[in-house]
Design a protein around this nucleic acid. Structure first.
Length: 306
DNA sequence: AAATTACACAACCGCGGTCTT
DNA sequence: TAAGACCGCGGTTGTGTAATT
């Protein structure tokens, strides 16, 4: 034998829009008693509704911590980026946007963002790694948006105290798969904080930046041209492979400091360039740094040099 | 001014995993 | 252990409103 039925379907359970009176009954009851079992709630609260309908009404509309009003540009950007990672996992996206419900985000995506992206030529962008976009540039944009969001997730979680806290944050959505995902990301961020930079550097944007700086170097015979990126100045770990791994042999403390300062400058130049090139992001937003913040980067470079 | 179309969003439906008996 | 309800989620529909013809 299983449980008793959710609600008595033989009685005329009301459907459709909620009246203010019904809302008041529901709010009053939950504030006084908590929702407890949704199945029993309608009866106890004096509502002629299905428990499921009550739960939906409460979680999507009546909950006191719900943020009403239009989505901010930061929220819009977050939705686009998170959607690029997780796809239509609205509850996971909602977990990253305090005060917003999965239903609200889903509606907003379907009515606003999807249309905007179509106009931009990003019709039906695939969740996860970009695939099937009509133009390579758009693929790059989506990939970058995805990387950006990954970085943001990783950093926000890593900055809380380790993967345990990250998991706790993630489990606010009561999704075990989400917590696993975020815990993995947090762990990855702790181990490889500059990974996003490296991946962007390896992308078309990185190529474009290198071409630009090489051209600038040709035009400007001066060796200290500010725009010339010196790959040798960056830690070998950032540039693996035959063409990477510049001078790390004579690593005195002084040269390390100089190299790190140059690396920081060039890192910033590259990010500025990428922001211009991709037109997707411009510096900080939403309380999170787009890429590893300077202190995190400094730590990473420090580790790489020493 | 009326009819039509487009838009926004609340609410419902159905499915799959979890939990209870 | 199995049956079946509960719960949460994503997809879809319905309805009210604004804009356009």
């Amino acid at each position: 034998m299983g449980r008793a039925p959710c609600c008595d379907r033989t009685k005329g359970i009301k459907k459709g829009p909620w009246t203010p009176e019904e809302d008041k009954l529901l709010v009053d009851y939950i504030q006084a008693n908590g929702h407890g079992s949704w199945r029993m709630l309608p009866k106890l609260a004096g509502l002629n509704r299905c428990g499921k309908s009550c739960r939906l009404r409460w979680t999507n509309y009546l909950r006191p911590d719900i943020k009403r009003g239009p989505f901010s540009p930061e929220e819009q950007k977050s939705i686009v980026q998170l959607h690029a990672i997780v796809g239509n996992k609205w509850s996971m996206i909602a977990a990253q946007l305090p005060g917003r419900t999965d239903n609200e985000i889903k509606n907003y995506w379907n009515t606003h963002l999807k249309k905007q992206l179509r106009r931009m030529g990003l019709a039906d962008p695939p969740p996860g790694p970009a695939a099937g976009c009509p133009a390579a540039r758009h693929m790059a944009q989506w990939e970058t948006a995805r990387l950006e969001a990954e970085a943001r997730l990783s950093l926000s979680l890593a900055s809380s105290s380790g993967s345990t806290a990250a998991t706790a944050t993630a489990t606010t959505s009561a999704s075990s798969s989400a917590s696993t995902l975020f815990a993995e990301r947090a762990a990855a961020a702790a181990n490889k904080p500059v990974d996003i930079f490296l991946r962007l550097w390896s992308s078309d944007t990185g190529d474009a930046f290198r071409r630009k700086t090489a051209a600038a170097a040709k035009r400007n015979s001066s060796k200290d041209a500010a725009v010339v990126i010196k790959q040798e100045a960056l830690p070998p770990s950032l540039f693996p492979g035959p063409s990477g791994g510049g001078g790390g042999d004579d690593s005195s403390a002084a040269s390390n400091e100089t190299g790190m300062a140059e690396a920081m400058d060039q890192y910033q130049m590259f990010l500025d360039f990428a922001g211009e090139e991709l037109g997707l992001y411009h510096g900080r937003y939403g309380g999170f740094s787009l890429f590893p913040p300077p202190d995190v980067l400094a730590d990473a470079l420090d580790m790489a040099f020493n």
